[in-house]
Simulated assay, not measured.
Amino acid sequence: MRLVQFEVSNGERRVGVVEGSQVREVLSAHSVRELALAAIEAGVGLVQQVQSLGLGDSHHYAELLADLKILPPLDHPDPAHMLISGTGLTHLGSASARDKMHQQAGDDSALTDTMRIFRWGVEGGKPAAGQAGVQPEWFYKGDGSIVVRPGAAFPVPPFAEDAGEEPEIGGLYVIGHDRKPYRLGFAVGNEFSDHVMERKNYLYLAHSKLRSCSYGPELRVGELPRHLAGTSRILRNGEAIWQNEFLSGEANMCHSLENLEYHHFKYSQFLKPGDVHIHFFGTATLSFADGIRTQPGDVFEISQAEFGAPLVNRVGSADAAFEPGDVITL
């Protein structure tokens, strides 16, 4: 089952099930989060909860996408109760592009921190079930306010040095009243980062991740296929300027999903009842590694057949939110 959240003509929210070219409304459901919390309370799965409510009116999916009526497939009414985070160096082959950025000039033989963490993952990232493996790289990206709906533009701040895509799969979670994380499913995501800033110094990685992101348009309920092969491409003036295969799933990863989830949710501050978590699982495909530099107006298109419609966003701009000296002393 694939779910979407969308707005109808009067601005009200709906939850829908994707059925081919149509989206069928889930009766009495206004958010996937509420749907998930109700399923947890009832002790049933998300699919069973949808089936218990039934389906209503149909909407043309393509029109909802074109009119930017499709919302991210999971969110929170209070963005402060939504955590966007991620992990990297999790995919086989993911270390090469990152390692190029972090090599010490004139010392290609030095083992970088990138390669060291990647090797740790290869050696210990897939422990036996119920066991903790080596911890991966982890980063904070923002709260719910940084999420851009499918089809919309990424607001690139004036201090940004790059506007680069990161095609990834993200896990979508709600914390139950029992303080346990419940995975609703997965979505295609664009984790969107500043790779020029990261390349300057690895300690700038945290800064480079504080950008917008997008995921969806669909939530794929259930387990993640072991092998996923999709496409990431960039369009400029309607023409593709770069395209590459985008692999994911545990068959293409050096960490198990269980291990990545453990090393995120082991922190008690991430187990607040009702909160929403979006956790990106990393990628091995970056246009930046191929020398591509994006421009305002460029369009990112990330597709995985198992996740339905592609995720499309473009490079936009944003005014400065703060200037030097603007802190006020009380």
Rank of each mutant, 00 (worst) to 15 (best):
F6S: 08
E12N: 09
V15K: 01
V17G: 04
G20T: 04
S21L: 01
Q22W: 05
V23Q: 04
R24S: 03
E25Y: 01
V26T: 00
L27P: 00
L27E: 02
H30D: 01
H30M: 00
L35Q: 01
A39G: 01
I40H: 03
I40A: 03
E41Q: 05
A42T: 04
V47D: 07
S52L: 15
S52R: 15
L53M: 09
G54L: 02
L68P: 02
L68R: 09
L74A: 07
D75K: 01
D75V: 03
H76P: 13
P77T: 10
H81F: 07
S85W: 07
G86R: 07
G88M: 10
G88L: 15
L89V: 12
H91P: 05
M101C: 15
M101D: 14
A105K: 09
D107E: 13
L111A: 11
T112P: 07
T114P: 08
T114N: 14
M115I: 11
A132W: 15
Q135T: 12
E137P: 00
F139Q: 10
F139L: 11
G144W: 07
S145Q: 10
I146M: 11
V147H: 08
V148E: 09
V148G: 09
R149W: 13
A160N: 05
A163Q: 08
E166V: 09
P167T: 15
L172I: 10
Y173E: 12
D178L: 00
L184I: 04
V188R: 02
V188E: 02
E198L: 03
E198F: 03
N201S: 13
N201M: 11
L205C: 02
A206N: 09
K209G: 05
R211K: 10
P217T: 01
E218C: 09
G222D: 05
G222A: 03
L228D: 01
A229L: 03
S232T: 07
E239H: 04
A240Q: 09
Q243V: 10
A251Y: 08
N252G: 12
N252M: 12
M253S: 10
M253H: 08
M253A: 13
S256W: 15
N259A: 08
Y262H: 12
K266V: 03
S268L: 06
S268G: 03
F270D: 11
G274E: 13
V276N: 05
H277S: 06
I278E: 06
S287D: 09
T294N: 15
Q295K: 14
G297C: 07
F300K: 02
S303C: 13
Q304I: 07
Q304W: 08
P310G: 11
V315R: 03
V315L: 06
A318F: 12
A320Q: 15
E323F: 14
G325K: 04
